[in-house]
């Protein structure tokens, strides 16, 4: 009987030990933060430039479809984008395809607008509004594309759409300049497929959805994209702000290192165990 040497043990390591190591790794790096600058990627710059070239009072639709589970990625993104829109004096409306996202995104928008220096944004409905929750995104986009007040009827506070100051002079999505999809799920294709043609599309996905985004960036169906927390971090850097993004990035970086380390270790163990078997 071959004795259980360290390598065979390592190959069959209890997965619960791996889980504990990962947890501790993240906890340690959250407790002892240090600074590391980001590389600005071209899709992030694309989105930043597109928002930066907006004129005051241009209308932007933010499609916010995320819920608490992707908060770590989507919240820094949404906050950064709203801050930038306020800085440009643009008007914006939010719409959610997720019931939970309606409350969350409204709460965040209230938080960001209240803490901004621009008093115009302090009153809800003046420069921004939340159009509420739509169950079927395709139907909603097509509907809003032809008639906003008919498709959405009332905003999240129950005000009829045509009585909102922020939407004065806007009849449909056609009167918007841009839509930014902040999302953890596959909502982007719907915006690309069913939006009015004049609307440019920006994308703020979680990292996992970004892979699909490259295809649309390449085909110019997307003007720019910020990828997950990293993208939010880049966007913050472009705006010269410091937000939540900075705090989390190190813990993430080193969890990547940890995983690489263990993949290496696993392979080493496999090779060594094979060699030991060959000798025996």
């Amino acid at each position: 009987m071959q004795q259980q040497n360290i390598w065979t043990k390592l190959i069959r390591v209890d997965r619960r030990i791996l889980y504990l190591i990962l947890f501790l790794n993240i906890a340690v790096f959250l407790m002892f933060p240090f600074k590391m600058p980001a590389t600005i990627t071209s899709p992030a710059r694309g989105l930043y430039d597109a928002v930066d070239s907006l004129q005051p009072n241009d209308l932007v639709m933010i499609s916010s479809n995320w819920s608490a589970s992707t908060m770590a990625e989507n919240q820094p993104q949404l906050e950064a984008i709203i801050k930038h829109l306020i800085r440009k004096g643009a008007r914006f409306t939010l719409v959610s395809n997720e019931a939970q996202s309606r409350d969350l995104s409204k709460r965040i928008a209230v938080g960001v607008t209240q803490s901004s220096d621009n008093a115009e944004y302090h009153t809800y409905g003046q420069k921004w509004a939340h159009l509420g929750f739509v169950t079927d995104l395709i139907a909603a986009i097509r509907g809003m594309g032809s008639n906003l007040s008919e498709a959405v009827k009332q905003d999240v506070e129950g005000t009829p759409i045509d009585q909102l100051p922020v939407l004065q002079g806007a009849k449909s999505l056609k009167d918007y300049k841009m839509v930014i999809d902040v999302t953890p799920s596959g909502t982007l294709p719907y915006w690309i497929s069913y939006r009015p043609p004049n609307l440019i599309v920006g994308y703020a996905p979680t990292s996992v959805m970004a892979a699909e985004g490259f295809t649309y960036l390449d085909s110019k169906q997307l003007v720019g994209m910020i990828t997950g927390l990293k993208g939010a971090h880049e966007y913050e850097q472009l705006m010269g702000e410091t937000g939540l993004g900075h705090k989390f990035i190190n813990a993430i970086s080193f969890s990547h290192v940890l995983i690489l380390l263990f993949i290496g270790l696993g392979n080493l163990a496999m090779i060594m165990a094979r060699r030991a078997q060959g000798e025996a």
């Binding site: 990962l22 947890f23 993240i26 906890a27 959250l30 407790m31 589970s69 992707t70 908060m71 770590a72 990625e73 979680t206 990292s207 996992v208 970004a210 892979a211 997950g228 927390l229 990293k230 705090k247 989390f248 813990a251 993430i252 969890s255 990547h256 995983i259």
Partner: peptide, 18 residues
Amino acid sequence: NTLMARMALLVGRVYYLL
């Protein structure tokens, strides 16, 4: 590319707990 997103979630949760 996905790893980062998943780690971000865990970081968010650990942050909540701690």
